[in-house]
Design a protein around this nucleic acid. Sequence first.
DNA 1: GTGCTGACTATGTCATCGCATAGTCAGCGG
DNA 2: CCGCTGACTATGCGATGACATAGTCAGCAC
Lengths: 159, 159
Amino acid sequence: MTVQLEGRLASRGDTPLGDRCGIDRTMQLIGNRTAMLLLREAFHGATRFDSLHKRVGVTEAVAAQRLKELVAAGVLAKEPYREPGQRTRHAYVLTEAGHALLPVVTALLEWGGRYAPSPYGPTPLAHAGCGEPVHTELRCEAGHAVPEEELVLGTPLEG
Amino acid sequence: MTVQLEGRLASRGDTPLGDRCGIDRTMQLIGNRTAMLLLREAFHGATRFDSLHKRVGVTEAVAAQRLKELVAAGVLAKEPYREPGQRTRHAYVLTEAGHALLPVVTALLEWGGRYAPSPYGPTPLAHAGCGEPVHTELRCEAGHAVPEEELVLGTPLEG
DNA sequence: GTGCTGACTATGTCATCGCATAGTCAGCGG
DNA sequence: CCGCTGACTATGCGATGACATAGTCAGCAC
């Protein structure tokens, strides 16, 4: 019923993990509502400050602050671009680390659609190739779907 | 390079999504560091208040508050139990909605291990069945791995 | 060089989240 | 019924995050 633990983790008693844990570090970097919503819009293809702040629905000050943090975290990069007849502007684009956050974003989206339903209903994800619904799930490199009770957590401190 | 949008979402201009978005609702319910860390410990099998608050490393007041919120959100349930020779206590156990958060937690863990590295190294996930490393990824119901550029987002407001 | 627009920055205020310390409360052992 | 322990609750304070309003700044159009 719970994740299996290995090595030092298995008998850590009640000592806190602190920043040994990747969840903690991730949440400290990008674990707030506004950052996630900015990422959502980045995945939707929004790149301009104006568009991002309006679509997320926060004030410019907050958007500027969060975007600065996301750039500092290496999740977004500021790239100069110029449209014809326009001055040079900066686009916020997802870095590799940013793109790697897609499972986080989709997992939050799926869960919210199912367990925090709204009058608007869930937002379905689909595969462009075959049209089938898409889910965020655990798979091992051998291709097996991994249910919770078959998940083993190693410890980073040994070996 | 970005998620493809369908229907009303495709041309929403710069209007905010607000709580039409499952990401937003999820983040409002459980989108803070302490809640995620409490869930981490719940997945590790911790059920008792004392254990949870110590392992997460927050004060009792904060743990009590967050646990109350998680119970209200339907993610944890308080269940009475009695050990022999002990008085009745309450265990915090994951509900079905709570278990459904596993992909969120593992996605955060994986990302942190890779892109917010610590001196302790990443925490590897493995499949108990075959020993292979496990990843949180997007799959369609036909079994295809879905890369970002093949992901289509529907809109909840039509049909 | 004036105006316009996109992209911020500044200020002030309020709510939320965290910490630290201290207090409460229930019930079993003695 | 006294004390201990686990599980909270209360209070006070500082940091963070949000909002609203207003100001700045760069550069192209004219």
